[in-house]
Write a protein that binds this DNA or RNA. Structure first.
Lengths: 107, 107
DNA sequence: TCAATCAATAGCCGCCGAGTTATCGATCCC
DNA sequence: GGGATCGATAACTCGGCGGCTATTGATTGA
């Protein structure tokens, strides 16, 4: 049961790959060449990372002649925020419970 | 430059480990034995995962006789929400720029 | 037409991490 | 004290993943 959380966490866990995604968020659409120039790794490595990001739905590609432009798809982060909200909700629900409230007073 | 995001994403990227953390969020404090019973992996594997979670600040341990009780530390998730908020902020900021550009083109 | 550029793919390698079994230290109970 | 239980550690295996170079395919432009 490999859900959306698995894919997102797994995809974003690599620093190089996450840096690429962050850059696309900051600066908008970028070509593979531009991304490679600042990534510190080879062009094939960047292409692989972009493939993983694309399969996770975090980026989309647009072909224009020889170049491929990639851009961030921020909506794909929704499951991530949902997950953290859910964890907080669990926490909150237990916190409302008197027994758990007392149990947590020593923290 | 291994920041808090690296640690969090890396720690939560493993499904087994994330399941342990989720369970601690849902059900509160649990012993290693209880966590092992439902994890599907061996006790040493669970202990290792708990060690990783502890080093990431996501759980704390409390010793009581032979048993060790673990509980979730939800505050440690803050860098994660910060990160997603930041990504959204970048995207929003670029969207505002585009809006300004279009607004100026109208005039 | 042909050289040059861009990005993707193939193929390979090395390492890290998640899993295992075995064991140890500590604690509980009889 | 001695056996049993709990959890951490040791030592090892193995698969996957991130990196590389080399190559291919496609497109550009001289």
């Amino acid at each position: 049961m490999t859900n959306a959380h698995d894919v997102l966490f797994r995809t974003l866990s690599d620093p190089t790959r996450r840096a690429i995604f962050e850059r696309l968020c900051r600066e908008g659409e970028q070509t593979v060449g531009a991304l490679t120039a600042q990534s510190g790794v080879s062009q094939p490595a960047v292409s692989k990372h972009l493939g993983v990001l694309r399969q996770a739905g975090l980026v989309r590609d647009r072909h224009e002649g020889r170049q491929t432009h990639y851009s961030a798809q921020l909506g794909a982060l929704a499951p991530l925020t949902d997950w953290t909200n859910q964890m907080n909700a669990f926490w909150q629900s237990r916190f409302d419970d008197l027994e758990d409230l007392l149990k947590r007073m020593d923290q």
